[in-house]
Computed example of a mutant assay.
Amino acid sequence: MSKNTQRIALTALLVTASLLAACTQEQQNKISRDIQNWTGTNGVLEVYAGDKLVRRFLKVDKISTALGTDDKAPRAYRYGYGVLDENLNRVADPDEKKVYFEVSDYSNTVFFENPR
């Protein structure tokens, strides 16, 4: 790499770091979520009724916040796509299909990256 290319790369890195440092914590979190949404994850979403697991979705790549059509205000639910783990065995069996789901902000859910 030439010295000129190194200087340009270093300058770009310093400018990016300065811009991020000037962002509020909420703006930094949004940037992080946008990057995660772009890269995707191998997530698991579990839905509980009290202390009992009632639904599990596997291979969830992202969960999005619903926005109003006209006012663009966030709605009180999240949505996404994942494989419905009907038998709750934490394996996406061949007969289990990818489905669309919605979960309320008020539901008892846990979302995490699949450790497998």
Rank of each mutant, 00 (worst) to 15 (best):
D51P: 01
I63C: 03
F112Q: 09
A76M: 10
L20T: 07
L10D: 15
V60G: 00
G50H: 01
T109G: 08
I35Q: 03
A17K: 10
K3Q: 15
D51C: 02
K72A: 07
S64H: 08
V99N: 05
L67G: 05
L53R: 03
A9Q: 13
Y106C: 07
A76N: 13
A73K: 12
V110T: 13
L13T: 14
V47C: 01
M1V: 11
T39F: 14
N42C: 07
Q27V: 08
Q36E: 09
V99T: 11
D85K: 03
K98Q: 13
L58T: 00
L45D: 02
N4V: 14
L67I: 05
D85E: 07
A66Q: 06
V91G: 05
Q6L: 15
I31C: 04
N42H: 08
A12N: 14
R75N: 06
D105M: 14
R78C: 01
G68Y: 02
A9H: 12
D95T: 09
P94G: 06
C23W: 13
T109S: 11
A9V: 11
A12K: 15
Y100N: 08
N108E: 06
Y77R: 02
A21T: 12
A22I: 06
K97A: 13
E102A: 11
P74C: 01
T41N: 08
T69K: 13
K3I: 08
Y48M: 01
E26S: 09
A92G: 05
S32N: 13
G40A: 04
P115Y: 14
A66T: 03
M1L: 11
T16R: 13
G50F: 01
K59I: 03
I8K: 11
K97W: 07
D51W: 01
A92M: 06
A21H: 11
Q28V: 07
S64Y: 10
F101P: 03
A66P: 01
R7K: 15
L19S: 09
E96R: 04
N42E: 09
V83F: 03
N29W: 12
A21S: 12
Q6G: 14
I63Q: 00
A73P: 03
Y106V: 06
R33Q: 10
G82P: 00
T69M: 12
Y77I: 00
A22F: 07
P74R: 03
G43D: 01
S104W: 11
R55V: 03
T109H: 06
S32W: 12
V60R: 01
N37K: 07
K97I: 11
P74E: 04
T109N: 10
D51I: 04
F112Y: 15
